[in-house]
């Protein structure tokens, strides 16, 4: 489904601020894979996400989604295949537009946008039904401006918008990190449910070790722009937080340094 080959990226190459963000990264995801991604600060996790979504271009290497090469496709072109939820709850929605307008825009993903009216009775019904599934009462507030929602409500809405049209790849970059523990847990549960219902191929960055182990069928660990550990299916089920941290130290030669790391709940 997703195929990344020999992907590399340097920031400010050749200058004193040269930063290695990704070095020769290879990654292949099968349809329906739900991969959690962990790693220290600056490991290159977000850079990898940005490269897939097209906000950044690689220095070398290629990216394919379902057989289509997207390495140099502009962000808006490739977005028909990619759903994305950002860390910042502000980033995934248009705050001055209503919930239903935001949903309508998400609904038009991958279609050309013309002069047909964005919201009609049939669509509104669909939106209401989908919002109802979130179970947080947003279906009653179709015409509320998104800017009036709480961070948790916005992330839940962003998640729905990102997955609405069943993208081939879902990218989640610490999408619960800005929320308090209770709301984060709720959004995590929604994520789990939506991903398994729609069988979405998902890449999820998290700083919560417990979550990284519990969710998904595969776990990758990044450090210094490389994937240093890739744990699948059965092996993943037997992981413990202590074991994972130990493994990290052994391979990378240093402790997992992360200002936001959460060991468990």
């Amino acid at each position: 489904m997703l195929q990344i080959s020999h992907l590399s990226k340097l920031f400010h190459p050749g200058s004193v601020d040269e930063k290695i963000a990704l070095v020769n990264v290879n990654l292949q995801l099968k349809p329906g894979d739900f991969v959690t991604v962990i790693g220290s600060n600056g490991a290159g996790k977000s850079t990898l996400m940005n490269m897939i979504s097209g906000t950044l271009r690689p220095d070398s290497g290629t990216i394919h989604i379902g057989g289509n090469e997207i390495t140099n496709l502009s962000e808006h072109r490739r977005s028909r295949w990619i759903g994305r939820v950002f860390q910042d709850p502000m980033a995934g929605t248009a705050p001055h537009m209503t919930i239903e307008e935001n949903l309508a825009m998400a609904y038009s993903r991958g279609k050309s946008r013309g002069l047909s009216i964005g919201i009609n009775a049939r669509r509104r019904e669909l939106f209401q039904e989908q919002l109802g599934k979130l179970g947080i009462g947003l279906e009653e507030r179709l015409r509320a401006k998104v800017g009036t929602l709480s961070g948790g409500e916005r992330q839940a809405l962003s998640l729905l918008m990102a997955t609405f049209t069943k993208p081939q790849i879902l990218l989640l970059d610490e999408h619960t990190a800005a929320l308090d523990p209770a709301r984060a847990e709720l959004v995590t549960q929604l994520t789990q449910r939506i991903v398994s219902e729609l069988k979405l191929t998902t890449l999820m960055v998290t700083h919560n070790m417990e979550q990284a182990i519990r969710l998904g069928n595969r776990l990758i660990m990044m450090d210094g722009g490389r994937i240093i550990l890739d744990i699948r299916e059965q092996d993943k089920q037997h992981l413990s937080i202590a074991g994972l941290l130990g493994e990290f130290e052994q391979i990378s030669g240093h402790k997992l340094s992360d200002d936001r790391v959460v060991l468990g709940t």
């Binding site: 906000t55 977005s79 248009a94 537009m97 307008e101 038009s108 993903r109 946008r113 013309g114 009216i117």
Partner: peptide
């Protein structure tokens, strides 16, 4: 319209509407 909403979203959150194509 869909186009008009995309235009409004461009002023409201450019990154978001780009991620929706």
């Amino acid at each position: 319209t869909e186009l008009g909403m995309a235009l409004r979203a461009t002023g409201d959150n450019q990154r978001m509407i780009r991620s929706f194509g």
